[in-house]
């Protein structure tokens, strides 16, 4: 337990809006082990991006962390002063975003941006940092890194920008990388390249990663363990193979069915009826109960307690296939 790189315990992040308190992240537990790639899978509005921003402490009002702790190497990040946090952010924990264009500074060249964070965090000279940057870009499959490094972001294609973003994220030898929808904005043929790249990095650098995605295929391709998130809560966790081959939670089951049924012709496509609950309302019982095909009476009364089984964990009173 103690060798975990990241341990999130009972984390709740709420948005205090005019229309009420939105419980975007609601009592989430999550563990990332050494050299482990953990996926957080869920659909739009499930709170997965808020979860990532909470770990980085990058939340803006009206969002606020109200409960829980985030242990990074046994240090609770939520208790650190902002100054200490700044030393961790970008150095020990770094982040890859879905839309690199909006995180790259349009007025600086790739080199200037990469060098800046390296000289700041690694205390190396500009020359060293620059040659290191070229090295990293080369490793990321950029064919002419000495040229590319002199470019401004607008001169790069979408795939290139994402590579540069990844390069920046790993430039300071982070211990943990959070990737929020790292390949969503990319075309399939480029997406595969980036995924291969991430797998490669993980093998070579021994990175621990959290990959946040709505794409089940991406999660399956690169994660060891996944957490399925629904309406601000984790509903199921387990090894990728287990969860994909034998989903326990009806939501995971439905999600997989919805994705896979489209690969079959001549049969109706599957879907999950209804919509996720509004997170401002007080909900009794399981949040998924209104859409669940497998619900029992108890689901409407009490939020499910976790049940454990062969290293898997599911929050459901009546799991699939029991």
């Amino acid at each position: 337990m103690n060798d975990a790189v990241l341990r999130v315990e009972g984390l709740s992040t709420y948005y205090y809006t005019d229309k009420g308190v939105v419980r975007a992240v609601d009592g989430v537990d999550l563990v990332v082990g050494e050299n482990e790639v953990v996926g957080v899978v869920g659909e739009s509005g499930c709170g997965k991006s808020t979860l990532a921003a909470s770990v980085m402490r990058l939340l803006q009002p009206p969002a606020k962390i109200v409960k829980g702790s985030i242990f990074f190497r046994n240090v609770n990040l939520l208790e650190l002063p902002e100054e200490e946090m700044r030393k961790i952010r970008g150095k020990k924990i770094s982040m890859i975003f879905q839309n690199p264009a909006s995180y790259l500074n349009p007025l600086l060249t790739v080199e200037e941006q990469m060098v800046e964070s390296m000289t700041l965090h690694l205390r190396i000279s500009k020359q060293e940092a620059a040659s290191r940057a070229v090295n990293i870009l080369e490793k990321l499959g950029i064919s002419a890194p000495d040229t590319v490094i002199k470019y401004y972001p607008h001169q790069l294609s979408g795939g290139m920008k994402q590579r540069v973003m990844i390069g920046m994220a790993i430039s300071c030898n982070p211990e943990l990388v959070l990737a929020d929808e790292p390949t969503t904005a990319l075309d399939p043929t480029i997406q595969v390249q980036i995924l291969e790249q991430l797998l490669e990095l993980r093998k070579n650098l021994g990175l621990s990663m959290v990959v946040i995605t709505h794409d089940l295929g991406v999660a399956k391709a690169i994660c060891d363990k996944i957490y399925v998130m629904y309406a601000g809560k984790i509903v199921e966790e387990g090894k990728v193979g287990d969860v994909f081959n034998r989903p326990l939670h009806p939501y995971t089951y439905g999600l997989l069915e919805s994705a896979l049924s489209v690969y079959e012709k001549d049969r109706p496509a599957k879907f999950i009826d209804g919509a996720p609950p509004k997170l401002v309302e007080e909900i009794k019982g399981c949040y998924f109960a209104n859409r669940c095909f497998n619900k029992v009476d108890r689901c409407l009364i009490e939020y499910p307690h976790p049940s454990f089984k062969n290293g898997r964990k599911v929050y459901c009173w009546n799991p699939v296939g029991d």
């Binding site: 659909e43 739009s44 709505h214 999600l255 919805s258 489209v262 496509a269 879907f271 999950i272």
Partner: peptide
């Protein structure tokens, strides 16, 4: 559309 509701529109088109 999210994956879990996409099937409804696919079926509707069909």
């Amino acid at each position: 559309l999210d994956v879990s509701v996409r099937g409804q529109i696919i079926n509707l088109l069909k």
